[in-house]
Every structure is written in structure tokens, then in C-alpha cells.
Design a protein around this nucleic acid. Structure first.
Lengths: 173, 173, 173, 173
DNA sequence: TTTT
DNA sequence: TTTT
């Protein structure tokens, strides 16, 4: 239930292969960087200037499993989720805020690489939506009705992947 | 034009009165903090736990003018915008990233306090949508077709309000 | 699961009290007429002309129960659903198509009459969101995770309310 | 401007090549049939049953031109528009209502066949987004800020393509 | 009438 | 920091 609406809809491409982890309960958690492109007219030159916006996306549950298995660097994807800002401490002990698009049991994902390669897939890893039998990937994943054992759509601080250790420096985004 | 989709839809309440500024060209820029509420069931206790998400919203152009004039602390509002992450330096010279919901010429706003007071309005400032003549506020503002002089929908770094000076400490969010 | 995206988002007011029925399984089905207003500039006169669009909304499950109980004629509401076109026969045996916004287990509803009356409520029926204890209505209803007994989100022709009988003439919309 | 929100977001495939026409002012008007797929679990059999929903889409202005030029039968596309129900008379003089998704100056379109053929393109007509120079199609089209000469986003009855003549029988949808 |  |  929610008093208010908090909805994000993105269509973009993955900057890297998705990062898949698992909670202690065995629930998949996938982190993505998604690029959405836009171009605007420069006031001075009148030129059309391309501008890429990067989005940090976190997926839980069944959608995370599908995303981790079938999305690859360059994959085009539709996602629907909600905005969430997380507070954490960097090495200097300072508060840092990271805003993410959370795709949980109420979210949606749809792979949009229906025809051909996902682009830039690593060493034989499946990209886009492979056609071979026994590996049929759903183009869309929604989690409504799912009984996600660990309540992954509202993870407590403790069950979330620790963000600080995942990066080389203080800036996680 | 855009290659990709980057859309945010929020319904929430303002945490404070909006902060209105003007670019050198005289275009209004309004900053809001918007709360969206959600509640989730705690795994341990089974209790319904309320959870508030705060969103930093930046409005440009005509929508900004309407928002600055009619929205107040507590006002309920629908907004449609896009995600944008800004990079800036804090006092220690460290990179800091702030994600905002940008409501520009392509965005939309709708005031939802149609019946009665907006709540918490300061010293005589109009709140909600007052019915008296001569002060008729549009409940909705969209900017499509607007010829926003300063190109406010793609502000260069230079024309944006300097974020660092606006706060008492390093954390702008 | 879905291959494709089919999403409708509306904020509008009810033209009449909601029409609540029940399936043989006891699941609530609510029909609403929702008005969204828009104004456009007339080419000839340059005048701003108001234009109201009416939407036929059908709600299932828990959302339907909440809607039937708390929404009234004039109530302002946010809904999220999907488009669905139904084919039926009128008295002359001709095929007629009716497009509806279906709010089922994947949809969302949020009442937006938080302050004051919902407007036009009939004889003591609760309108908007009444404050009195024992009658606390959720402002928002989402159905994710709900185990809707009768599978009300994909009703077979047989379990749906018969559309023809509900109206005085052939035109159900 | 709008008092209310009326938004439709679809990702689907075209059932046929788009139907392009022009208003007396020379503005393009494109009609599409868009399929969105969904599957639901049958109550009796427990089987996953596929279900296709067909949407009638009408595009105006620049988006219509791009759509008419680059979309083809089978093309996958993202569109954002608004719901509109039109009333007209069939041959028997009866009122008929047709609900369409209108993509005008406030709408958006994004072609999603970025990699490879659009599928089913007719005799050499460009499908999907062809890569060859001199034929570069924008993957996305938005019309905000556009000064559409004929006010195509709010067409009067008179300037719209006459629906009755376009079909073999009384049912246009 | 599409798509996988 | 909001709202119910």
C-alpha cells in the first residue's frame, strides 16, 4: 500500500553487464547502470547536443533473476520502478546519498532486444533474447502476485548488499 | 528529442514552502522537496511500517512560476518529470552527486489541493487553489509549446542556481 | 507476465457514484465514469476552450471494494490501469466495441480528496476520506501480492457483469 | 493546459503498415493498430493463456511524419499519448464510439527496432531504423515546442480524416 | 492484424 | 521536512 505515487519509467541501454548478488535468503539482487539519451539545442550554437543520463537501477526477486540471466552490456530494456534514496557512509565517515530506481515486486521489466544481439555481450554469455530451446527467456518480467519469500521488495538494511565494499572509491555512482 | 525514455511520476506533499529563484534571464527556477509515503509489512513483526521517500524536484519555466506562487508546505501535488543526476564539489573538494526530478518544458504539474487549504501556508501566502476572483490559479501547468526564452529546459551549468551556497553544510539533499 | 506495455494513468473526477457489483465468487467489480479535463486554444478565436474526456473504468478485487466504499460522484482520484476493448452485441445484434481502463491486481488507485468532502455524495454515504474512527479508508489501494480468489483480474465473459442490461439503450458508454 | 491527467503508455507491435493521411493544411495524420500481449493463468486448466490487446493509435504532427515514414507492419514501438473517445454515425445512423490513443504535440514515440529489420516491411519500404546514410531515422520523436501550423493537436471535427469512409463496413475498430 |  |  502507498499513500502517494512514486513511479519511474525508463527505456535505455546497459552500460555494463548486470551485477548479480544474492541475499542470505537466496534472493537475487541485480544492479544495473542504464543510459537514457537525449539531445537538446545549444542556445549559443544552435547545435543539437547529445546528453546521456545514467541511472542506477536495483532489481529484486524474479525480475532480478531474469535480468541477471539475459541482460548484458548494451542491452536495451524498459523498466518501471520507484525512486529511492539511500544514505551511507564513505571511507571518511561522511554521509553520502545515492538515488536508485528500485524495481521490486511492483515493478516491471521488458527486454527490447527482440531481434539479434544485445550488443557487447561478454564471452558467450547470452545476450538479448536467445532463441534456442531450453533457454527461453521471457521478454517481460513482472512480479505481481509472486510470493517472494524473503520479502525482497522491502529489504531491511541488513539484508541489502553492502554498497561501500562494491566500489574502488568513495563514489558509488 | 530523445533516444530513450526517462520519466518520473510522483504524487506527494511538499516538506516546505518551495524555494523560488531566477536565472539571469529572469526565468523562474523552483526547488521542492516532495514526500511520497509507502508502507510495507515488516518480516519479523508482521507490522505495517510507514516509510517516507523524499524527492528533490527542480522546476523550470512557467510551471516553476505557478508552483512558486501557489504551492506551499504541505501542498499535495502531481508532477511528471525526468531523472537527472548533477555532479558538484562539496567544501572538501569532493565530488558529490545529487539526483533530482527535473520538471521542464516537457514535464507536467497538477495541484491536488482543490478543496480547502493547502496546509501550513505562511503569512497570508495563497495555498492550495484559492477560489476568489483575481487570484485564480491553474490546477495544472504544462509547458508544451511554450517558447521559454532562456532555453530553461536545458540549462547550462552557468545559468543554474549554485547548489553549494544554498545549504548550511555539505549535504544538499 | 506481459510481452509489451499497456499502461493508463488518469487523474480525474467521478461523474456519478461508482456502480458496485459482485461476481458469483463474491469478488467486487466496480464501474466508474471518470472525467479528465483539458483546454485547448481554438484556432479561429484564439479562445481557450475547455474539453472534458470521459473514461470508462472497471476495477476488480480489493481496489474495487475500496473504490465502491469511499468514492462518490465528484471524487477526485488517481488510477493506474490498462486498456482493454470488449466486444459485445447490442439489441440489434450488432457488434459493439467498448474500451475500458481496467484496474486489476496490477493497477493502482489513490483517492485525492484528502481535505474535505468528495462533492455530491448521496444521503450520508461516505465521501472522500472520512476521518472518523472505525471507518478509516486507505487513500491508496494496490493489489500486488493479493491472492484474488476468483482470478478476477482475467474474468471470463461469463463472470463479467452483463453490459447490455445495465443501460437504457444500446450505447453503453 | 489540463486539469487532470490523461496518459497512456504502450509498447507493442504494429498489425499493419501505418495509414498516413494529410489534413487540408498539409499536416500528417497517421493511424496505427498496435498489439500489446499479455498472458494470464486460466483458472480451470492452470494453463498460461496468451491474450492480445489491440489499440487504435492516432498520431499528429511531426511524430506522425516519422511514424509514417519508418514504422511498418510488425515494428515494435513505444508510444505515449492520451485517451480520446470519438462519437460518429454508422451507416444506419447509429451513434458509435471509438476510443483511440492520441499522440499529439504532448506525446512521444520511440522506435524499438534498433537492431535489424522491422519485420514484414512491404516492397522495399524502409522498416525499423535503417542504418544507411541519407535515410537516418530518429529513433524517438517528441513534438514539444513544435509550432504545428494547423493546430493539429486539437483537430476540429472538420479537419479530421473522415472515419466512416475508410472502412468496408460499419465497424471501424 | 503484430510479436516471441 | 510533508501528508493521513
Amino acid at each position: 500500500m502507498a499513500r502517494g505515487v512514486n513511479k519511474v519509467i525508463l527505456i535505455g541501454n546497459l552500460g555494463q553487464d548486470p551485477d548479480t548478488r544474492y541475499t542470505p535468503n537466496g534472493n537475487a539482487v541485480v544492479n544495473l547502470n542504464l543510459a537514457t539519451d537525449e539531445s537538446y539545442k545549444d542556445r549559443q550554437t544552435g547545435q543539437l547536443v547529445p546528453k546521456t543520463e545514467w541511472h542506477r537501477v536495483v532489481m529484486f526477486g524474479k525480475i532480478a533473476e531474469v535480468a541477471g540471466q539475459y541482460l548484458r552490456k548494451g542491452s536495451k530494456v524498459y523498466i518501471e520502478g520507484k525512486l529511492q534514496t539511500r544514505k551511507w557512509q564513505n571511507k571518511e565517515g561522511q554521509d553520502v546519498y545515492t538515488t536508485e530506481v528500485v524495481v521490486d515486486i511492483n515493478g516491471q521489466m521488458q527486454m527490447l532486444d527482440s531481434r539479434g544481439e544485445g550488443g557487447g555481450a561478454n564471452q558467450g554469455a547470452p545476450a538479448g533474447r536467445p532463441q534456442q530451446a531450453g533457454n527461453a527467456a521471457p521478454a517481460t518480467a513482472s512480479q505481481s502476485g509472486q510470493q517472494s519469500g524473503g520479502g525482497s521488495n522491502q529489504p531491511s538494511q541488513g539484508s541489502m548488499p553492502e554498497p561501500v565494499d562494491d566500489f574502488d572509491d568513495d563514489i558509488p555512482f
